[in-house]
């Protein structure tokens, strides 16, 4: 499974990617903002999107809206990983149809659980 990790913080991209490798996902593409992510998705493809919210150029919410409207990637699993933990923020993210939501700082176990839960839902959802 190929992951696309989107975060404007190089530190966070490294941490997420290292964690993914630790839990068994070695194939990863990275992007520094939403626009970069769009380009990477179209050129390199991915099966699972992990995105930050606050980013320059195009934020995680806008990226999610774009992905959901895309014919090829509209059903792609999306996990938002962000510092924003207010109720309104979580609802806003759910409205644009992220599959799940992690509040930073996260743990490796927390990330694994969210990915597993999303994949389980995607697998069990009727086509």
């Amino acid at each position: 499974m190929k992951f696309l990790v989107v975060d404007d913080s190089l530190t966070m991209r490294r941490i997420v990617i290292n964690t993914l490798k630790t839990i068994g996902y070695a194939e990863v593409v990275e992007a520094g903002d939403g626009k970069d992510a769009m380009a990477k998705l179209l050129s390199e493809g991915a099966d699972f999107l992990i995105t930050d919210w606050n980013m320059p150029e195009m934020n995680g919410l806008e990226l999610t809206k774009w992905v959901r409207a895309n014919a090829q990637y509209g059903n792609m699993p999306i996990l938002m990983v962000t510092t924003r933990g207010n109720k309104e923020d979580v609802i806003e993210a759910m409205k644009v149809r992220v599959n799940n939501y992690i509040v930073k700082p996260f743990t490796a176990q927390g990330l694994k659980e969210k990915i597993d839960a999303i994949l389980k839902t995607v697998e069990t959802k009727p086509a």
């Binding site: 404007d8 919210w53 606050n54 980013m55 320059p56 934020n59 962000t82 510092t83 924003r84 933990g85 207010n86 109720k87 979580v90 609802i91 759910m94 799940n100 939501y101 992690i102 509040v103 930073k104 700082p105 996260f106 927390g110």
Partner: peptide
């Protein structure tokens, strides 16, 4: 620019915020 950051970001090891988010989801 004002939309590139979360000025309320906090380094909090408590699971409370995640638990709240999970309940909302």
């Amino acid at each position: 620019p004002s939309g590139h950051f979360d000025s309320n970001a906090q380094f909090n090891r408590s699971t409370e915020r995640q638990d709240d988010a999970d309940a909302i989801i």
